[in-house]
Each structure stands twice: as C-alpha cells, then as structure tokens.
Design a protein around this nucleic acid. Sequence first.
DNA 1: CGGCATTTATACCGATCTGTCTGATCAGCT
DNA 2: AGCTGATCAGACAGATCGGTATAAATGCCG
Lengths: 196, 196
Amino acid sequence: MATKAAKRPSPRERLLAASDELFYRDGVHSTGIDAIIEKAGVAKGSLYYNFGGKDALVAAYLQNRHNAFRQRVEEAQARTDDPDEKILAIFDAVADYVSEPKFRGCPFTNAAAEAPAGESQQLAIKDYRNWLRQTFLKLAIDTGVADSQALADALTILYDGALATAEMNSGARAAAMTAKRIARLTLAAAKASSSA
Amino acid sequence: MATKAAKRPSPRERLLAASDELFYRDGVHSTGIDAIIEKAGVAKGSLYYNFGGKDALVAAYLQNRHNAFRQRVEEAQARTDDPDEKILAIFDAVADYVSEPKFRGCPFTNAAAEAPAGESQQLAIKDYRNWLRQTFLKLAIDTGVADSQALADALTILYDGALATAEMNSGARAAAMTAKRIARLTLAAAKASSSA
DNA sequence: CGGCATTTATACCGATCTGTCTGATCAGCT
DNA sequence: AGCTGATCAGACAGATCGGTATAAATGCCG
C-alpha cells in the first residue's frame, strides 16, 4: 500500500460517473438528482457542495463527453498525416462511437432536444458545436480545396447525419461507414472543382 | 349563418393544436398536461375523455406531424416526374421546413431523445422511420441504380444530417441546400458506378 | 321532449421534482 | 490534539407531475 491509488474515487468523480450513465441513458430532464446520488452512493449535500445545482452537473457531464470524444477523434487522426485521411478518420471514430451497445444518439443533440435548458448546459452545448465547426473548417482548409467553408459545411451534415441515423435506424456502424463513403466522395468533388 | 362553419374547433382539435405547439417547442417531457389544457381552453376531463392519457396525446401529436410532413413532401414531388428530381424535391421540402421561425429540430428525433417514451409514442416514431425508409428506398429503385439500398442509406443520412445540422447550427436553410447538393453528387456517383 | 354523449370546473390523490437545512461524522493537516 | 473543510444521512419545503373523481351544465339527435 505504498502507492496512493487503490482508493475509492471521490464523491465528485462518482457523481460524474453516475451522471454520465444516467443522463445519457435516460435523458437529462428525466433523470432526477435522487437517482444520481443513489447510484453514486453520495449524500445529496455533497452534490450541491461540489456542483451547486443540477444545471452545473449537466454542464459537467456534457463537458466530459466533449473531452472524451475530442480525445477519440485526435487518437484516430494521429495515425495519419494526410489531411484527407484525417478527415475520414473522424468518421471512423464516429463508427466506433455509435457501435457501442449503450449508444443512444449524440449527447448534445439529445440534451438540446429537451428544452428548457439551463444556462451552463446551453454553454456546454455551444462549446461543443464551436469545436466541431472549427475542427471541420481547419481540416477543410488543410486539404487545399478552394471553398473550404463549403466542404466544412458538407462534412458537418454528414457527421450529424451519421449520428442521427445511427440512433434512429438499425445498423449504426453501417450508417457511419456510409457517411464516410459520402465524405470521401464529397472531398474528391471539392478537389476536382478546385483544380478546374 | 347558413353554413356549418365559423364555429369554434372541437376540444379535440384545440388539444391537438395546443399539443403541437407546446410539445414541439418545449419538449414532450417538459410540457405538462396542465399547460396544454390551459392553452387549448379545455377542461382536463376532456383530454382524458378524448385521448385517454398523455402518451396517446403525444402519439397523436407525432402522427399529425408525420402526416403534415408527408403531405409537404408529396406536394414538392408533384412538380416533377423525373425520379432524380423527386429525390431532390425532398430536400427542398426540408429546406422549407427548417426555415420556419419555430423550427426546433426533427420532432421525432427530439421525442426519441427524451427517454422514457410511452408505447404509443414509440409506435408513432417507428411508423415515421418506416415511412422514411420506404420512401427513400422506392425513390432509389426508381432511379435505376444498381445498389438502390446503398443509395437509400446515403439519402437517409443526408436527410437526418440536414435536420440535425439545421437545428444545431445557424443557417438552417443553407444546411438543407448543402444536403441537397451532396445528394445530387451521391446520385450521380451511384449512376456512374451502375453503368460501369 | 327525453335521453345520451360530451364538456366543464374543480377538488383531490400519490408520486416526484429541485433545492435547503441541520447536525453529526470523517479525514487531513499543522 | 485540535482545527477545518468535506461528507454523510435524512428531514423538509414548495412546486409540479399525471391521473382520477364528482357533479353540473351543455349540445345534439331522435
């Protein structure tokens, strides 16, 4: 027992873990804080001591999802240096994401669908969308196509479409791979029209 | 006063109108039946007399949305006989849909995001998705491409992507038109690979 | 006119919600 | 040992939820 590890996670971490599971599975609005503190094995007072309220807890849950997904994307992109492949790697990350048994749609789109949202929650969603927009725009610029904005817009639609279709239809992974195929097609067309 | 019209709509119709506005704007779960009966100007008993419960009212709301959107699609398609144009007309209908000031995402995707859902609600969502799948598949077959299923899958992703991106980003109409552009591209590619 | 279905207004039920508060206990640090 | 911040268990508040019950009023149709 020389190491400091092997201890039970802090109430804060347990609350975040329980929030991630319940908020995502049952929806933000449908999940009561009583269910969260029970699953986390934490007193109600600790929730309000650490987060201040449900809205902040929801925001923290979304921020965690944001960071985790961003990390997945970066890992998938790290395997290549080609700008085109970096774009397509995003759809590989999406394919893995939607293939998980617990996949239940995009956490941010789901949260946004449950109006009304608290201020912190809205901010977390906006942060995610800004990151997504910037990511696609940078990648589009790196490809060297003439209209990088148009390419970024197209990729965003394919990304959102992959997640939405994967949730609503069967064959989640196939939906992501189809989106990847169209992305490759769109990329090629954008390059062709650039050199013209 | 010879005509039978000019009368106040029935409680059932008033409830459906109020449900459509409130369920869509604030979400199914967040909207209480008290808010609906108040907006409809109807006694609470009439709601349960006509619908039996909230779940059935939600299902009726979704069925109304389904029928209304299907009608819009059919009207947009009626302007042409070309199979390709019939496909692209769907995205024109989507463009109009997402351009409305009150647009707040796909009603069915939103409702599905708010777990848990009642049985009738789930059925209504499933009906919609089945109609969507069949519609795209028939259209894809009519184009004469070899892999009509693959084309239908691609169109579904573009359709879902247009609605999702239109909700989460600014420039809703532009998102739908971008989806239409990619649909045209995908259609051309499918035809090219068919003749090969 | 009589009868039936519908609508109305309102009170009520049990459950659940977020959030506050209290008071004891625990753990780490000096 | 003693102080302090963190956590605990639980009671409580105030509001809202979906749904039920009741009794009177209304409208339509034969």
